[in-house]
Each structure stands twice: as C-alpha cells, then as structure tokens.
Simulated assay, not measured.
Amino acid sequence: MSEETKITQIGVVVRDLDATMKMYHQLLGWGPWNVYEHTAPVLHDTHLHGKPATYSMLCAEVMVGDMCYELIQPLEGDSIYKEWLEEHGEGLHHVAVMKHGQDAADQFKKDMDAAGAKMLMGGRIGETIEFYYLDSEPQLKVILESGTGHAIDLKPIRTYPA
C-alpha cells in the first residue's frame, strides 16, 4: 500500500434502528439521520461467505464532523450483520475505508486478500455503489468495509428527526 487509507465511516449493528437513532440524537445531538432501506432489486449481486445470498437491511447515516456514522439493522436473509448480533450483540461492527473509483476498490480488495483478509460479504446498491466486508480481524482487530460509491448517490426513504 503506497497511499494512506482513510477512514470514511464507522458502522454499528443494531436490532432497533429507530430507537437507536433516537438515543444518539437525545444523548449526542447527532442528526439529521438519512434512513435507507436496501432491498432487491436495488440491492443486488449480493454474496455471503463466497456464495450468492439474498439479504436486506435498514441503514441510517449521519455526518459527525467529516466522518459518516452508520447504524445497520438487518432485515431478511442471512448476513454478517445477523451473525454479529448473534455472536456479539449490538455494537461496533466495522470501519469503512471506501475508495474513489472501481480500480482503487479492486486493488484494495486484491491487496487485502494477499494479506489474508478474505471477503466476508458484499454486493451492489444501484449502479454506482459496490460494498464488501473483509475479515481483517486477525490482522487489524476489526472488520473493514470497502468498495466504491457513497450513499450520497441514493435518496433516503426518510430522515430523523423529521
């Protein structure tokens, strides 16, 4: 890796997105939150542990300074979010290091694979976003998310507070 990899997002897995957003807003003043529902067919080409998989999730994002903070509530299907909730409960799930282009995202994936950080889960949202999660816990003690594109390209289903 020749260039510094910047953190673009912190992700937390929760069971109740609305209750968690409300708590963050009340205790930390964070908002407004943009809420997204990621389901097929907009969510596509999804995979889990190297096999095609179908899953969906609710996500809420808020900017805290220059950092995006994301809450994820799994909905249907098996996902690493559900696995995390079963094994660890709610809490910090991943650090995202999103890339600015497909070539950079592909190279990062290749470099991390060579370092032993295998793909856990991934997919595409619309035509502009690819996301993937890497099993980088053995090396970095945290799951990394990367890919290309950002939710700024998407229209939220709602905001909180309204």
Rank of each mutant, 00 (worst) to 15 (best):
P32M: 04
S79A: 04
I125P: 10
P156S: 00
V142Q: 05
I80H: 03
Y133R: 07
E76W: 05
Q102N: 12
G11K: 03
V62C: 09
G65K: 06
E3I: 00
T54D: 12
K99A: 01
K6W: 04
P138N: 12
M121P: 07
T148V: 11
S56W: 10
H100P: 12
M98H: 03
C59G: 09
T148L: 03
P156N: 06
P41K: 06
I152Y: 00
G149D: 02
E3D: 08
L140M: 10
K109L: 09
E61G: 08
I152D: 10
L85V: 01
G31M: 13
Q26W: 13
I152N: 10
E83R: 12
L48D: 02
P138F: 02
V64K: 12
L154K: 08
H94N: 07
W30F: 14
E130L: 15
L75R: 08
A114N: 08
A105G: 06
S146K: 00
H88I: 12
H49C: 06
T148D: 00
K99Q: 05
P52M: 02
S2D: 12
T5Y: 02
P138E: 13
H49L: 12
G149M: 02
S146E: 00
S56T: 11
L48E: 04
F108K: 02
L85H: 04
E127H: 10
L28T: 09
G122R: 12
T20V: 11
L48Q: 05
G123S: 15
E4R: 12
L75Q: 10
L92H: 07
E70T: 04
R158M: 10
I10K: 03
Y55F: 14
E76S: 15
C59Y: 00
Y132I: 04
L140S: 09
M57R: 11
D78W: 02
M67V: 13
L140R: 05
K155Y: 05
A162Q: 08
G123L: 12
P32I: 03
P32N: 04
H88T: 04
K118Q: 11
P161L: 01
Q9M: 09
Q107Y: 00
Y24C: 04
G65E: 04
A162H: 08
H25T: 15
M1C: 07
Q107T: 09
L58E: 06
A60K: 06
C59S: 07
Y36R: 02
H44V: 03
A60T: 08
E145I: 01
L120F: 09
G149E: 03
C59D: 06
Q73M: 05
D66A: 13
L120G: 11
L48I: 04
M63N: 07
Q26L: 08
H25L: 06
D18A: 13
M112C: 13
H94P: 08
L27W: 11
I157Y: 01
I80R: 02
A96M: 06
K22H: 14
G65R: 05
V142G: 01
E61W: 06
G91Q: 03
K82Q: 13
D106R: 14
L27M: 15
G116D: 14
P156Q: 01
E137Q: 15
T159P: 01
T46H: 08
A117Y: 11
I125D: 03
H47K: 10
